[in-house]
Design a protein around this nucleic acid. Structure first.
Lengths: 115, 115
DNA sequence: CATACCTGCTAACTTCTCTTGGCATGTGCG
DNA sequence: CGCACATGCCAAGAGAAGTTAGCAGGTATG
Protein backbone atom coordinates (compact mmCIF):
# COMPACT_ATOMS: atom_id res chain seq x y z
CA UNK A 1 0.00 0.00 0.00
CA UNK A 2 2.45 2.56 1.09
CA UNK A 3 6.19 2.68 0.95
CA UNK A 4 6.35 5.40 3.55
CA UNK A 5 7.15 4.61 7.18
CA UNK A 6 3.68 5.79 8.12
CA UNK A 7 4.43 6.42 11.79
CA UNK A 8 2.01 6.29 14.65
CA UNK A 9 0.09 9.44 15.35
CA UNK A 10 1.95 9.75 18.61
CA UNK A 11 5.23 9.17 16.83
CA UNK A 12 4.41 11.84 14.34
CA UNK A 13 3.70 14.31 17.10
CA UNK A 14 6.97 13.45 18.74
CA UNK A 15 8.93 13.89 15.53
CA UNK A 16 7.20 17.11 14.61
CA UNK A 17 7.69 18.47 18.09
CA UNK A 18 11.35 17.62 17.98
CA UNK A 19 11.74 19.46 14.70
CA UNK A 20 9.71 22.49 15.62
CA UNK A 21 12.61 24.39 17.09
CA UNK A 22 15.26 26.62 15.54
CA UNK A 23 18.12 25.08 17.49
CA UNK A 24 17.16 21.58 16.63
CA UNK A 25 16.75 22.49 12.99
CA UNK A 26 20.28 23.85 13.03
CA UNK A 27 21.51 20.77 14.79
CA UNK A 28 20.01 18.54 12.12
CA UNK A 29 21.52 20.77 9.48
CA UNK A 30 24.95 20.60 11.06
CA UNK A 31 24.83 16.86 11.53
CA UNK A 32 23.55 16.39 7.98
CA UNK A 33 26.81 17.96 6.89
CA UNK A 34 28.84 15.69 9.10
CA UNK A 35 28.71 13.90 12.37
CA UNK A 36 30.07 15.72 15.37
CA UNK A 37 30.69 15.35 19.05
CA UNK A 38 28.81 17.33 21.64
CA UNK A 39 31.35 19.89 22.76
CA UNK A 40 32.52 20.57 19.24
CA UNK A 41 29.01 20.93 17.96
CA UNK A 42 28.12 23.24 20.81
CA UNK A 43 30.99 25.52 19.87
CA UNK A 44 30.10 25.34 16.24
CA UNK A 45 26.52 26.32 16.93
CA UNK A 46 27.39 28.83 19.57
CA UNK A 47 25.26 27.34 22.30
CA UNK A 48 26.04 25.80 25.66
CA UNK A 49 26.71 22.10 26.02
CA UNK A 50 23.91 21.69 28.50
CA UNK A 51 21.47 23.19 26.05
CA UNK A 52 22.78 21.14 23.18
CA UNK A 53 22.48 17.97 25.21
CA UNK A 54 18.83 18.60 25.89
CA UNK A 55 18.08 19.21 22.25
CA UNK A 56 20.10 16.23 21.10
CA UNK A 57 18.29 14.13 23.62
CA UNK A 58 14.99 15.21 22.18
CA UNK A 59 16.07 14.53 18.63
CA UNK A 60 17.37 11.16 19.67
CA UNK A 61 14.10 10.38 21.42
CA UNK A 62 12.33 11.04 18.16
CA UNK A 63 14.79 8.78 16.42
CA UNK A 64 16.18 11.48 14.20
CA UNK A 65 19.73 11.26 15.46
CA UNK A 66 21.81 8.61 17.11
CA UNK A 67 24.85 8.75 19.34
CA UNK A 68 27.92 6.60 19.45
CA UNK A 69 30.52 6.91 22.10
CA UNK A 70 34.07 6.72 20.75
CA UNK A 71 37.55 7.26 22.03
CA UNK A 72 39.71 9.87 20.38
CA UNK A 73 43.40 9.19 19.74
CA UNK A 74 44.37 10.94 22.92
CA UNK A 75 42.02 8.76 24.90
CA UNK A 76 39.23 11.23 25.42
CA UNK A 77 35.70 9.98 25.30
CA UNK A 78 33.81 11.64 22.49
CA UNK A 79 30.14 11.19 21.93
CA UNK A 80 29.50 11.43 18.24
CA UNK A 81 26.06 12.20 16.95
CA UNK A 82 24.80 11.69 13.44
CA UNK A 83 21.50 12.16 11.65
CA UNK A 84 19.40 9.21 10.84
CA UNK A 85 18.29 9.41 7.21
CA UNK A 86 14.56 9.99 7.08
CA UNK A 87 11.90 11.11 4.69
CA UNK A 88 8.68 12.45 6.06
CA UNK A 89 5.99 13.57 3.68
CA UNK A 90 3.33 15.74 5.21
CA UNK A 91 0.05 16.34 3.46
CA UNK A 92 -3.49 16.65 4.76
CA UNK A 93 -3.94 12.99 3.81
CA UNK A 94 -0.86 11.57 5.49
CA UNK A 95 -1.78 13.55 8.57
CA UNK A 96 -5.34 12.30 8.48
CA UNK A 97 -4.02 8.77 8.35
CA UNK A 98 -1.69 9.32 11.28
CA UNK A 99 -4.38 11.05 13.29
CA UNK A 100 -6.36 7.84 13.28
CA UNK A 101 -3.74 6.16 15.37
CA UNK A 102 -3.51 8.89 17.94
CA UNK A 103 -3.59 7.87 21.54
CA UNK A 104 -6.72 9.16 23.20
CA UNK A 105 -6.08 11.79 25.88
CA UNK A 106 -8.74 9.82 27.65
CA UNK A 107 -8.06 8.70 31.18
CA UNK A 108 -4.85 7.70 32.88
CA UNK A 109 -3.16 4.71 31.41
CA UNK A 110 -0.10 4.59 29.18
CA UNK A 111 2.23 2.98 31.70
CA UNK A 112 5.40 3.87 29.88
CA UNK A 113 4.38 7.16 28.37
CA UNK A 114 3.77 8.76 31.72
CA UNK A 115 2.29 12.20 32.01
CA UNK B 1 15.96 23.05 -8.52
CA UNK B 2 13.03 22.17 -6.40
CA UNK B 3 9.35 22.18 -7.02
CA UNK B 4 8.62 22.32 -3.34
CA UNK B 5 7.58 25.56 -1.65
CA UNK B 6 10.87 25.58 0.21
CA UNK B 7 9.65 27.70 3.10
CA UNK B 8 11.68 30.01 5.26
CA UNK B 9 13.33 28.44 8.25
CA UNK B 10 11.04 30.44 10.46
CA UNK B 11 8.06 29.39 8.41
CA UNK B 12 9.06 25.80 8.73
CA UNK B 13 9.27 26.10 12.48
CA UNK B 14 5.87 27.71 12.55
CA UNK B 15 4.33 24.99 10.42
CA UNK B 16 5.97 22.19 12.35
CA UNK B 17 4.97 23.72 15.63
CA UNK B 18 1.40 24.04 14.48
CA UNK B 19 1.34 20.38 13.51
CA UNK B 20 3.05 19.07 16.59
CA UNK B 21 -0.12 18.65 18.57
CA UNK B 22 -2.67 15.86 18.77
CA UNK B 23 -5.66 18.17 18.63
CA UNK B 24 -4.39 20.02 15.64
CA UNK B 25 -3.58 16.79 13.87
CA UNK B 26 -7.15 15.68 14.40
CA UNK B 27 -8.41 19.02 13.21
CA UNK B 28 -6.45 18.72 10.00
CA UNK B 29 -7.73 15.19 9.60
CA UNK B 30 -11.33 16.27 10.08
CA UNK B 31 -11.04 19.20 7.73
CA UNK B 32 -9.30 17.03 5.16
CA UNK B 33 -12.47 14.98 5.07
CA UNK B 34 -14.61 18.07 4.67
CA UNK B 35 -14.82 21.66 5.66
CA UNK B 36 -16.65 22.48 8.82
CA UNK B 37 -17.75 25.36 10.98
CA UNK B 38 -16.34 25.95 14.42
CA UNK B 39 -19.17 24.83 16.68
CA UNK B 40 -19.89 21.75 14.60
CA UNK B 41 -16.25 20.80 14.47
CA UNK B 42 -15.90 21.29 18.20
CA UNK B 43 -18.75 18.90 18.81
CA UNK B 44 -17.37 16.45 16.32
CA UNK B 45 -13.97 16.45 17.99
CA UNK B 46 -15.36 16.57 21.48
CA UNK B 47 -13.53 19.69 22.58
CA UNK B 48 -14.66 23.14 23.63
CA UNK B 49 -15.11 25.91 21.13
CA UNK B 50 -12.66 28.12 22.92
CA UNK B 51 -10.02 25.47 22.66
CA UNK B 52 -10.79 24.74 19.05
CA UNK B 53 -10.57 28.40 18.21
CA UNK B 54 -7.10 28.66 19.62
CA UNK B 55 -5.90 25.67 17.66
CA UNK B 56 -7.59 26.77 14.47
CA UNK B 57 -6.01 30.15 14.90
CA UNK B 58 -2.62 28.55 15.13
CA UNK B 59 -3.16 26.40 12.08
CA UNK B 60 -4.40 29.42 10.19
CA UNK B 61 -1.35 31.40 11.26
CA UNK B 62 0.80 28.68 9.75
CA UNK B 63 -1.25 28.86 6.60
CA UNK B 64 -2.52 25.30 6.83
CA UNK B 65 -6.18 26.17 7.07
CA UNK B 66 -8.30 29.10 6.02
CA UNK B 67 -11.61 30.46 7.24
CA UNK B 68 -14.52 31.87 5.36
CA UNK B 69 -17.49 33.43 7.03
CA UNK B 70 -20.76 32.40 5.47
CA UNK B 71 -24.42 32.73 6.22
CA UNK B 72 -26.51 29.61 6.61
CA UNK B 73 -29.98 29.44 5.13
CA UNK B 74 -31.53 30.42 8.39
CA UNK B 75 -29.37 33.50 8.58
CA UNK B 76 -26.85 32.31 11.12
CA UNK B 77 -23.25 33.30 10.67
CA UNK B 78 -21.09 30.23 10.21
CA UNK B 79 -17.34 30.33 10.04
CA UNK B 80 -16.23 27.57 7.78
CA UNK B 81 -12.69 26.29 7.91
CA UNK B 82 -10.95 24.17 5.32
CA UNK B 83 -7.49 22.72 4.89
CA UNK B 84 -5.13 24.31 2.50
CA UNK B 85 -3.59 21.61 0.32
CA UNK B 86 0.09 21.30 1.13
CA UNK B 87 2.98 18.93 0.65
CA UNK B 88 5.91 19.16 2.98
CA UNK B 89 8.82 16.83 2.50
CA UNK B 90 11.13 16.58 5.45
CA UNK B 91 14.58 15.10 5.10
CA UNK B 92 17.89 16.03 6.67
CA UNK B 93 18.64 17.89 3.45
CA UNK B 94 15.46 19.91 3.18
CA UNK B 95 15.85 20.79 6.81
CA UNK B 96 19.44 21.81 6.32
CA UNK B 97 18.36 24.10 3.52
CA UNK B 98 15.63 25.69 5.61
CA UNK B 99 17.94 26.08 8.58
CA UNK B 100 20.08 28.42 6.50
CA UNK B 101 17.29 30.94 6.40
CA UNK B 102 16.57 30.89 10.09
CA UNK B 103 16.25 34.19 11.85
CA UNK B 104 19.12 34.67 14.21
CA UNK B 105 18.15 34.69 17.88
CA UNK B 106 20.64 37.48 18.02
CA UNK B 107 19.55 40.69 19.65
CA UNK B 108 16.17 42.33 19.84
CA UNK B 109 14.81 43.50 16.57
CA UNK B 110 12.17 41.86 14.40
CA UNK B 111 9.52 44.54 14.78
CA UNK B 112 6.70 42.41 13.41
CA UNK B 113 7.79 39.09 14.79
CA UNK B 114 7.20 40.24 18.35
CA UNK B 115 7.18 37.33 20.75
C1' DC C 1 -39.57 37.14 25.09
C1' DA C 2 -37.27 32.84 26.26
C1' DT C 3 -34.54 29.21 23.83
C1' DA C 4 -31.41 27.54 20.80
C1' DC C 5 -28.06 28.05 17.64
C1' DC C 6 -23.84 30.72 15.79
C1' DT C 7 -19.71 33.91 16.61
C1' DG C 8 -15.93 35.93 19.20
C1' DC C 9 -12.86 37.59 23.22
C1' DT C 10 -10.45 37.71 27.73
C1' DA C 11 -8.84 36.58 32.33
C1' DA C 12 -6.64 33.10 34.97
C1' DC C 13 -4.72 28.70 35.94
C1' DT C 14 -1.94 24.82 35.00
C1' DT C 15 1.45 22.53 32.59
C1' DC C 16 5.30 22.09 29.40
C1' DT C 17 9.62 23.77 27.28
C1' DC C 18 13.68 26.32 27.12
C1' DT C 19 17.93 27.91 29.09
C1' DT C 20 21.43 28.90 32.39
C1' DG C 21 24.85 27.73 35.80
C1' DG C 22 26.99 24.74 38.77
C1' DC C 23 28.82 20.40 40.01
C1' DA C 24 31.01 15.83 39.41
C1' DT C 25 33.99 12.63 36.62
C1' DG C 26 37.66 11.10 33.52
C1' DT C 27 42.02 11.46 30.56
C1' DG C 28 46.37 13.54 28.72
C1' DC C 29 50.06 17.00 28.90
C1' DG C 30 53.72 20.33 30.66
C1' DC D 1 49.35 18.35 40.18
C1' DG D 2 46.99 21.96 37.80
C1' DC D 3 45.16 23.09 33.24
C1' DA D 4 42.56 21.94 29.18
C1' DC D 5 38.97 19.42 27.09
C1' DA D 6 35.35 15.59 27.13
C1' DT D 7 31.13 13.68 29.25
C1' DG D 8 27.14 13.87 32.04
C1' DC D 9 23.28 15.36 35.34
C1' DC D 10 20.29 18.32 38.20
C1' DA D 11 18.03 22.39 40.16
C1' DA D 12 15.62 26.49 39.28
C1' DG D 13 13.75 30.48 36.93
C1' DA D 14 11.60 32.60 32.87
C1' DG D 15 8.56 32.18 29.34
C1' DA D 16 5.34 29.97 26.12
C1' DA D 17 1.51 26.85 25.35
C1' DG D 18 -2.74 24.55 26.46
C1' DT D 19 -7.40 24.76 28.81
C1' DT D 20 -11.34 26.20 31.16
C1' DA D 21 -15.05 29.22 32.24
C1' DG D 22 -17.59 33.21 31.58
C1' DC D 23 -19.18 37.14 29.11
C1' DA D 24 -21.24 39.58 25.08
C1' DG D 25 -23.48 39.93 20.68
C1' DG D 26 -26.30 38.24 16.58
C1' DT D 27 -30.36 35.74 14.21
C1' DA D 28 -34.27 32.61 13.97
C1' DT D 29 -38.11 29.86 16.06
C1' DG D 30 -41.98 28.55 19.40
Amino acid sequence: MSNAPSPTGDDLVRVLASLANPHRLRIIAALARERAYVSGLARQLGISRALLQVHLRKLAAAGLVTASLELSEDGKAMNYYEVQPFVLTLTPETIAAAAETLTVPDSADQPGANR
